[in-house]
């Protein structure tokens, strides 16, 4: 029996929120579909990378996009049982506004027998100006 859309989101949300690091930095799965995922996190004082400006550390933006990329790979209906990041490139276009929520959207746009290709974008509360983009390759580990 196929899981309904809501079940899939529920299962994926439990999976993401069971990851200790994702939980420690407050990541929340907002949406997940066939090859697409959206995850967001709140700005928090302890995640700041530049004390002068209060801007969140770039590494947190890559953590968000990395997690979101992995979720997108796992959400493919024809997808793998497990995945891990092979490489990820992040382009930081502008600092995320302090105090605002950061949201990432990742898409697994191509899947081979062993590799998943992903691109992702991240925004703060201004949907017209992305803060970062990413592209990466993930492993696709299938059941033998």
């Amino acid at each position: 029996m196929a899981a309904t859309g809501d079940d899939r989101i529920g299962i994926a949300r439990q999976f993401i929120e069971a990851i200790p690091f994702s939980r420690a930095v407050g990541m929340v799965l907002d949406d997940i579909g066939d090859g697409v995922a959206e995850i967001s996190m709140a700005w928090a004082e302890e995640l700041v990378g530049d004390p002068e400006s209060g801007v969140i550390h770039g590494g947190m933006v890559s953590a968000l996009m990395d997690t979101c990329g992995g979720a997108a790979v796992m959400s493919r209906l024809d997808g793998p049982m497990a995945t891990a990041t092979i490489d990820l490139r992040i382009d930081y276009m502008r600092p995320a506004t302090p105090g605002q929520r950061i949201r990432a959207r990742a898409e697994c746009y191509h899947l081979t027998r062993s590799v998943a290709f992903v691109r992702a974008q991240a925004w703060d509360e201004d949907p017209d100006r992305p803060v970062a983009t990413a592209s990466g390759a993930f492993t696709a580990e299938r059941k033998a």
Binding site: P20, F21, H57, G59, M60, A63, D66, T67, L88
Partner: peptide
């Protein structure tokens, strides 16, 4: 295993 995002943050720092 360590989280990829934690590793990236460590390297960037």
């Amino acid at each position: 295993a360590l989280h990829g995002g934690a590793i990236a943050t460590f390297l960037e720092t």
